[in-house]
C-alpha cells in the first residue's frame, strides 16, 4: 500500500518536549479525549493519525491551550512543556501560544500585506526593536518557510492574493516568526493540491532541525512520508504510539492494523 520509499527515519533526539499524563477533554458532557499519555520529542516530527472525530485535533489544540477559546471545553490532567505544567495558573496562555505556534487546516492569512502578516507576531510580542530588526525577522521567516524567492518582490501586496499553497507557507512563516519552540499543524495540507502539498511536506522535514513539529493528518501516506513518530487515535483513546516505521509495518494493536489497512476509518 505504501510505495513511498521510507525515509531514513531515525529519531535523533531524546529530549522530551511535551509530556502529557492522563489528559481528558470534555465538550460539555461528552468526553472527547479519554486519558492520553504521550511524550513528544524535540527535533522530531510527530504525526497524529486516526479516523474523523477520534480526537486528534482536540488533543493538538490542548498543547497550546487553543481549547480555552471554546467556552464549553474543559481539560483535565497534566501537560508539561519542558517540565512546566502549561495548565498551571501562573502560565499565561497568550505567552504559551507564542512559544507553541500553530498552523491551521485552511490557510488563514490576515487581510494585510505579506510583510504585515509575517510581522504580526513579532510586533505584538515586541520581538523587534527597530524596523531593520523586523525586516531581518520577516526575511528569515519567509526563507524558512521557503517562500522568500516567490514573495520578496511583493512584500507589500496582500497575503490573500497568494495561491493556496503559498498562503499556507505564509502561515507557516507567520508562525515561525514568533520564534516558537514547537509547531502544531492541524491538517496543514488538506486544502492544498498535490504539488503544494509536496512543498509543504518538504518544508516540514526541514523545520524539524529547529522545532518539535506535531502534525495532525488524515492521510496515512503523509504521516509515513514526513514523520518519525506516529500516534494513532481512535474514539478518544491513544491506541498506539511509536516509531513511524514500526506503526506502519508492524502495528501491535489490532485496531491500528485495521485502520492502516483501511478497515476502519
Amino acid at each position: 500500500m505504501y510505495d513511498t520509499p521510507t525515509l531514513e527515519r531515525t529519531v535523533d533526539s531524546n529530549t522530551v518536549k511535551f509530556s502529557a499524563r492522563d489528559v481528558h477533554v470534555f465538550y460539555g458532557e461528552t468526553e472527547a479525549i479519554k486519558g492520553v499519555d504521550i511524550d513528544i520529542l524535540d527535533n522530531t516530527v510527530t504525526a497524529f493519525i486516526g479516523p474523523s472525530g477520534c480526537g486528534k485535533s482536540t488533543f493538538l489544540r490542548c498543547l497550546n491551550r487553543m481549547n480555552d477559546t471554546i467556552d464549553i471545553c474543559r481539560v483535565t490532567g497534566k501537560i508539561l512543556l519542558d517540565g512546566a505544567d502549561i495548565y498551571d495558573k501562573h502560565i499565561d496562555p497568550v505567552q504559551l501560544r507564542a512559544k507553541v505556534g500553530m498552523v491551521f487546516q485552511k490557510p488563514n492569512p490576515f487581510p494585510k500585506s505579506i510583510y504585515d502578516n509575517v510581522a504580526y507576531g513579532p510586533r505584538i510580542h515586541g520581538l523587534a526593536r527597530t524596523k531593520a530588526d523586523l525586516d531581518v525577522i520577516v526575511e528569515k521567516s519567509l526563507r524558512r518557510a521557503a517562500l522568500w524567492t516567490e514573495a520578496k518582490d511583493r512584500l507589500n501586496e496582500p497575503g490573500t492574493g497568494l495561491s493556496g499553497g503559498q498562503q499556507q507557507r505564509l502561515c507557516i512563516a507567520r508562525a515561525v516568526a514568533t520564534a516558537p519552540e514547537v509547531l502544531l499543524m492541524d491538517e496543514p495540507c488538506s486544502a492544498l493540491d498535490p504539488i503544494a502539498t509536496a512543498q509543504v511536506e518538504e518544508l516540514i522535514d526541514e523545520l524539524r532541525q529547529e522545532y518539535s513539529v506535531v502534525i495532525v493528518t488524515h492521510s496515512m501516506q503523509q504521516a509515513a512520508r514526513v514523520s518519525q513518530k506516529t500516534a494513532f487515535f481512535h474514539l478518544g483513546d491513544l491506541v498506539e504510539f511509536g516509531e513511524t516505521g514500526q506503526i506502519f509495518t508492524n502495528p501491535r494493536d489490532p485496531r491500528t492494523e485495521s485502520y492502516i489497512t483501511g478497515r476502519i476509518g
Binding site: 497550546n64 487553543m66 477559546t69 497568550v94 505567552q95 504559551l96 501560544r97 507564542a98 512559544k99 505556534g101 500553530m102 491551521f104 485552511k106 488563514n108 492569512p109 490576515f110 487581510p111 494585510k112 504580526y120 507576531g121 505584538i124 510580542h125 502561515c171 507567520r174 508562525a175 514568533t178
Partner: peptide, 27 residues
C-alpha cells in the same frame, strides 16, 4: 469575519483585544 482569522491571531499569541484591534476591526 471568518473564524479562521480569529484562530490565526489567537494562535500567534494575541490577546482578544489585540485580535480585535489588529485583525477583526480592520477586516
Amino acid at each position: 469575519v471568518p473564524q479562521s482569522l480569529r484562530d490565526g491571531a489567537l494562535g500567534l499569541g494575541a490577546t482578544r483585544a489585540e485580535m480585535m484591534t489588529t485583525v477583526l476591526f480592520p477586516a
